[in-house]
Design a protein around this nucleic acid. Structure first.
Lengths: 250, 250
DNA sequence: CTAGATAGTATTGTATGCGATAAGGATGTG
DNA sequence: CACATCCTTATCGCATACAATACTATCTAG
């Protein structure tokens, strides 16, 4: 790969698209990598050489490293000294930790929103759920993305910026986790559960909303993490070994 | 300030002290700045020029910028494009957000630990509380540090790495917040509340432990954020103006 | 033919340099 | 004397350069 070669690939467009003030390129790299990881263009465990990424995105290693730092804090990439960065490959234990924290955070969201949710806000959420419903048929990644977005929207409505950031972070990590351990056909979020939740929030029933959220996420985690089928399990078990041999990188 | 001048000041020692492998210096800068901010050697709102910091710590701007990035994610520094970094100066609203999230997170800690806390673990915590007690007399920062550490220790005991990270983060930010809005004499954490909490955790009374934690932190927040005394309030209100004039930086 | 050593290559860690932007001060004008 | 404008300087954004470390392939010895 020659340095003179211009940026290419789907991620380069993202960098260029957004406002090009100062610091915008750095953020662009971060966003590009983040999306690439969550959408599994970059698969868990994959090596991320600084200069290769930089060439493909049209920036220097400096900005790539900066992005790696942020992504490492968020748990999306692993950063080993002198050995470079890889897309994070969370263990089952880490996965459970993330899901546990997520349940706790989203219960907070439910409790905060309970009663304070306005009619128009609820209507917006309803509209979102209808989108989910529409996307349910076509199995594309659209359905998964929308389901995740629902939770982000809820967190936004709390008006608590820190809570939002944490929910976004655990959501990202859950995407990564589901990419590794999730069953192929899990529709992840049952749309009806989202509906019930909105209802409970509007009714101001904090306890019920909290319970619903908890069960909902527990169901997601269970579908993903528990009782993994043999077939898939052995395949997954092999990946770390393949990686240590430098294989399975495509 | 000459570049040839060796590192100086209390923070430089920290950089040098730790294992000097690769990446250790970058982490050293991060840790040094983090401590300096939390201990108020660097006061909220203070400007942080990259080269000045770098010279004083004996590293280049590169590593300083890296540290700034991490600290910005954690909410300890604010990073404005082309205008550099400053020690974060959270608004009262942000402060409330942080305390709210903290209460939620630590309730999770209490619930997780309730019943699973072993006798030796409880004994360790008891020992810590005794340290707090001992430090209570001398008003030094020791007392505040120990009170904060108690909560970190609890989070560690959950075994959930992510939960620990979040608790550490909100704790840091709370330190910063208390530095701005806290009353001078607030002893922050009542030692007896810590004792009661340990007791409830050992008894396996999840509801009570959760309640205790919640009240405890609500009390801390109330002492710090609510009903600020007039005298102190106007003083604090002036700080942003002073900063915009380049004053009050010492 | 295998295991270990060794040289060469690739990649990371850190510093420095150059162009760009904004803050602050000098100078001229109403 | 107040105010706007230009210029100077300090600081940032980013790229690049150099040094240190890890990886790879070859070669040699057993």
């Amino acid at each position: 790969m020659k340095a003179s070669e211009p940026a290419r690939g789907m991620t380069a467009a993202i960098v260029a698209r957004h406002s090009n003030g100062p610091g915008a390129r750095a953020q662009g790299v971060y966003r590009a990598l983040r999306r690439a990881i969550i959408e599994q263009a970059l698969r868990p465990g994959m090596k991320l050489p600084e200069d290769t990424i930089g060439e493909n995105l049209g920036v220097s290693r400096t900005l790539v490293r900066e992005a790696f730092g942020r992504l490492a804090v968020e748990g999306l990439v692993e950063l080993k000294p002198n050995r470079g960065a890889t897309v994070a490959y969370p263990t089952l234990e880490e996965a459970r930790d993330v899901f546990d924290v997520r349940r706790g955070l989203e219960r907070m969201v439910a409790e905060t929103l309970s009663g304070s949710l306005t009619k128009p806000q609820a209507a917006d959420l309803e509209a979102h759920v209808r989108l989910e419903e529409a996307a349910l048929g076509k199995d594309g990644p659209e359905s998964i993305r929308l389901a995740g977005e629902f939770h982000i929207r809820l967190a936004e409505l709390t008006g608590n910026a820190l809570l939002l950031r944490y929910v976004q972070e655990v959501s990202s990590r859950c995407s990564l986790i589901l990419a590794i351990y999730g069953r192929p056909h899990s529709s992840e979020c049952a749309v009806s559960e989202h509906r019930q939740l909105i209802e409970a929030l509007l009714a101001g029933d904090a306890a019920r909303a909290s319970q619903l959220m908890d069960h909902h996420l527990q169901a997601v985690a269970a579908r993903a993490l528990l009782a993994p089928r043999q077939e898939r399990d052995i395949r997954e078990l092999l990946i770390p070994y393949a990686l240590s041999e430098g294989l399975a990188q495509t």
